[in-house]
Design a protein around this nucleic acid. Structure first.
Lengths: 162, 162
DNA sequence: AACTAATTGTTATATTATTACATCAGAACT
DNA sequence: AGTTCTGATGTAATAATATAACAATTAGTT
């Protein structure tokens, strides 16, 4: 018996277990290399986020963390999220006040986020051409960028083909 | 005696009064054309937003509206903001949960927002090349975009030259 | 063992936003 | 003029998101 969430993940016909393993292993390895601690709580929060490719709300994470960490409070979640964001392991989706796993933690973290209004899944794209044009634009404007958020809302390819 | 806010506006050496007049006149005209009502409250909120080129928080607007509208409550502000956003007269800055006037209300509304961490001013850029590359990327991804938020945080040209 | 820095526990509170229902004002109609 | 409809606003309550401050604990270092 497969949960709805699992089904959602399979619509893109990827092996989600493998997808998660890769993300968690990579996260662990990056933290080791960087000498920062992927503690139990942080790992659990990251795992919860990776349960789907949808953006998750902080308080929803809190509810789902509580069975594992009875003492969990808002600060518990927000601290874990802060850490994961700092380490580039997750994206904060600004336009949703929500969070989603980052598939390219090791490499460049600044990406296009494509947010589907139907299935709610968030896709990341490196979008090299867009980024190049963006850098050029920023250069022209004399603007020194520290962070970039590019979030597109709409209907994903999978959903529009249905 | 000039207020700090006014000084900020002059750092880009533009006539802010003229800048505001243009925005408000255009807003009024667009609303007329569209047969929607730019009511007193909505106009006041729009004016407050245009007092600077910084992104303003909803509750700050509320405080500043109250002298003009004693009965103003959160819903008052959020309704006005919803209207102004719908009409493309302001931008919601997702990464700040704040609002800023839109200088190109009549034309395309989806733009690059450059948000300075020092002076806090928000600059809009049509960034045609970026948008073209973005459309191409979305096309490739088969993603039907409904809305786009591109927000860059950093240091603006004016501030870095100081 | 003692010290230090990082992490977590805990409480309280701040900030941002929405919902629901009542009231009001103006336009359109009879 | 009265009636009805619609859109806008008044009002109260509450939901949802996020942070601050300080205490306690844990992990690494000396």
């Amino acid at each position: 018996m497969t949960s709805h969430t699992e089904l959602d993940q399979h619509t893109f016909e990827h092996n989600h277990n493998q997808c998660v393993s890769l993300a968690l292993d990579t996260a662990q390895q990056l933290c080791n290399e960087r000498g920062v601690q992927l503690t139990t709580i942080r790992f659990q929060v990251l795992s919860l986020i990776w349960e789907s490719h949808k953006a998750v709300k902080a308080y929803e994470l809190l509810d789902r963390l509580r069975p594992l960490q009875a003492a969990a409070k808002p600060a518990t979640i927000y601290r874990a999220l802060d850490f994961l964001i700092e380490q580039g392991l997750i994206h904060r989706v600004e336009s949703l006040n929500a969070f989603v796993g980052c598939r390219s933690s090791g490499q460049q973290h600044e990406q296009l986020l494509l947010i589907c209004k139907l299935c709610e899944q968030v896709d990341e794209r490196a979008a090299t051409d867009v980024m190049t044009a963006l850098l050029e634009e920023l250069q022209q404007a004399g603007f020194m960028a520290h962070s970039k958020a590019i979030e597109i809302h709409g209907i994903c390819a999978n959903c529009s083909s249905k």
